[in-house]
Simulated scan of single mutants.
Amino acid sequence: MRQAIARMEVQTTGRGMVDITAPIDRWLASIKAVEGLLTLLLRHTSASLTIQENSDGNARADLMDAYDRLVPEGQTWRHSLEGPDDMPAHVKSALTGVHLSVPVVHGRVDLGTWQGLYVFEHRTAAHRRGVTLHYIGS
């Protein structure tokens, strides 16, 4: 049994989802991962991690629209110093989460056919988001 830890930065362009599946698989290959568990932690509170549809972008767009309906901007929030999109972003992040655990099989994340790993940016502006990767396995 062995472990490996790394941090990766993900550049977002504002609200939306950034597919991080390929860079994670490249990292797993670089450490010669075989079988194990990959834990991901997004080191932010106004974006989140999700496993989502990787084929039809409309599914991700619909999901973003649904989150905007659930937590719209324009409400009165006590935490508002960083702008009208900040507190809604925190709520969306709490709903989705900042942590994932994914099995690694044959050196790759073991996702379904139509699944990908995404950083889900909830803020309007572009951000650099840090993700900590922790692999444990063979």
Rank of each mutant, 00 (worst) to 15 (best):
G137D: 04
S93Y: 06
V71C: 07
P103R: 12
K92W: 06
T124W: 08
T50K: 06
A47I: 08
T113K: 05
D19C: 01
Y135M: 12
W114S: 11
H44L: 11
A61T: 12
L70S: 07
H106S: 11
E9R: 00
R43S: 11
T12Y: 04
R26Q: 15
M17Q: 11
V109P: 00
Q11M: 05
Q3A: 14
A47L: 08
H90C: 03
V71A: 06
S138Q: 14
D56G: 10
R2Q: 08
R69E: 13
A59G: 13
N54T: 09
L40V: 01
I51C: 03
H90L: 05
L49I: 02
M64F: 11
V104N: 01
L133H: 05
E121L: 04
L49T: 00
D110Q: 11
D62N: 12
I136S: 14
L40N: 02
R108P: 01
L95G: 09
G107H: 03
V105L: 15
L63P: 07
V91K: 08
Q11V: 11
Q115R: 10
S55L: 14
Q11A: 10
A33T: 01
W77Q: 13
H44R: 04
L95I: 14
V109K: 06
K92S: 07
V109A: 04
G57L: 10
D85L: 03
P72T: 14
E82G: 09
I136L: 09
Q11F: 04
A94C: 09
L28A: 00
Q3W: 09
Y118E: 00
V102L: 01
M17Y: 08
L42D: 02
E73D: 13
A94N: 07
T132M: 13
N54P: 02
S93H: 06
R123C: 03
N58I: 08
T132S: 13
I5H: 08
N58E: 15
A29H: 06
L117Q: 05
F120M: 07
V109E: 07
G107A: 04
P88E: 06
L28E: 03
G97E: 13
A89Y: 05
Y118H: 01
A4Y: 01
D62L: 07
Y118R: 00
N58C: 10
R43P: 03
P72R: 10
T132D: 12
Q11Y: 02
V10K: 00
Y67H: 14
T12E: 02
S80P: 13
Y118D: 01
F120W: 12
R69Q: 12
G137N: 02
E35A: 15
Y118N: 00
G107K: 07
L70H: 03
L38Y: 01
V119R: 01
T96F: 06
L95M: 15
N58V: 10
I51F: 03
G16D: 07
L37E: 11
H122V: 09
A66W: 14
M8G: 01
M8Q: 06
M87R: 10
Y118M: 02
S93K: 06
